[in-house]
Amino acid sequence: MNRSLLTMRAALVLLLGVLVGAGADALTALSGRGPAESVMAGAAACAGAVAFFDWVIDEG
């Protein structure tokens, strides 16, 4: 039995969400904000991106 833990769609949605969150975190940190504020911005961007990409990417 060779079952994967995540489907390809779920892995793609989560990967894109993490990439968006990391980008928002880096840009917020580079703007001179504190580490707590940049982590909060990255987490919020990640959550929004996961919801967006889940809606955009078709289940096919």
Rank of each mutant, 00 (worst) to 15 (best):
M1H: 03
M1W: 03
N2G: 03
R3P: 11
R3K: 15
R3C: 08
S4K: 14
S4W: 11
L6M: 07
T7Y: 01
M8W: 12
R9H: 09
L12H: 01
V13H: 05
L14V: 14
L14C: 13
L14H: 09
L14T: 11
L15H: 03
G17Q: 04
G17T: 07
V18D: 00
V18P: 00
L19N: 02
L19C: 13
L19S: 13
V20N: 07
G21C: 06
G23S: 08
G23E: 06
A24I: 09
A24S: 14
L27T: 10
A29K: 11
A29C: 06
A29T: 11
L30Q: 12
S31C: 10
G32Q: 07
G32F: 09
G34C: 08
G34A: 06
G34N: 06
P35V: 13
E37K: 05
S38I: 09
S38R: 11
V39D: 05
V39W: 07
V39L: 15
M40R: 10
A41F: 11
A43N: 03
A44K: 09
C46R: 07
C46H: 03
G48N: 02
V50R: 00
W55N: 02
W55V: 09
V56T: 07
V56G: 01
V56Q: 08
I57T: 01
I57V: 13
I57F: 06
D58R: 09
D58C: 00
D58A: 08
E59P: 07
E59F: 02
E59R: 11
G60D: 10
G60K: 08
G60H: 06
G60T: 04
